[in-house]
Design a protein around this nucleic acid. Structure first.
Lengths: 159, 159
DNA sequence: AGGGTCAGTCGCATGAACGAACTGACCGGG
DNA sequence: CCCGGTCAGTTCGTTCATGCGACTGACCCT
């Protein structure tokens, strides 16, 4: 990057990390983005304590990254969904994903691939679609399982 | 991103976060990338404990993100530098920066701007150079202070 | 000899996370 | 009607990571 002088903590990265830098936050955001919207599945998948999940969901809601929706009245049950602000974190998650794939690859290939929603091509690490060449905006991306994914879980994605 | 089913923790993001997800790690990487290569300046800038900085530097070295170089023999003194693996985290840092600028802007504008080293143009959030249109690789990027930067600190960068 | 810097280590107090149990509102079956 | 089960939490005790401050040791300068 640079090899020059440097100054103060007026830093956008530090501000971002205050919001999403806590343990579990980015993984929660990722899972919610993939459609895992309820408490118990999140808890089980992440292997996280209920209390920690409760507080993380709470702070992410405070920050406007998630919103809580009630989907059942009689037993009060809730779902968590990404806001636009939360969805805009997908480039961060994608870059983390690509870095991980580069330096800690799964033997069988990447477990997850980013796909351009409108044309179905997959993305390179500049978020340019390899098929149509378009520079893809965060909300036009979805994820699909790649070759490194576990055995029998191949949820067919409606292309 | 997606609103579909989801599976297991075979996740590149989780793997990445195990390496760089600890408190302070990304900020240390950012500062080292900006040329802050020594212990005491890092400590002072981050407002971090010496012991925590020591252990963070240690694990980042273990992970191959930083390397330690001795620059003085007689009083043994060291510098920390990014490896290629560490430099490849810059897209992650850039995306975090842009997200922070978007949702937590500095009143005077962004404090830091990403610049294409070879032509001097600045980058959009696809890492495409606004001047020459090239899709810029991580190691061709440097940072320069933007309008939101603190008063008197304007290190002139050799373009 | 005395003060200052740099790069740490050590010890103690506080705070966050983990594990496991408990709650409370429901549902479905026998 | 009682029993077991799910879902979304809360509470509690223990461990682990951080923060704060002091101390060390090797120098350097005056």
């Amino acid at each position: 990057m640079l090899d020059r002088e440097y100054d103060n903590q007026v830093c956008s990265i530090a501000r971002s990390l205050e919001v999403v830098g806590e343990r579990w936050s980015l993984l929660i955001i990722r899972n919610v983005g993939l459609g895992m919207n309820r408490f118990e599945p999140l808890r089980e998948n992440l292997g996280i304590t209920r209390s920690v999940l409760t507080t993380r969901l709470g702070t992410l809601i405070e920050y406007g990254i998630l919103e809580k929706r009630q989907y059942s009245e009689k037993p009060p049950r809730f779902e968590y969904h990404l806001t636009a602000k939360g969805r805009d974190l997908s480039p961060v998650l994608l870059q983390l994903m690509w870095w991980g794939d580069e330096y800690y690859p799964e033997p069988g290939g990447p477990p997850t691939i980013a796909v351009h929603r409108t044309c179905g091509g997959d993305l390179d690490h500049h978020m340019v679609c390899r098929k149509c060449g378009e520079s893809v905006e965060p909300d036009r991306v979805y994820m699909k399982p790649g070759p490194g994914r576990n055995k029998q879980d191949l949820p067919k994605i409606p292309a």
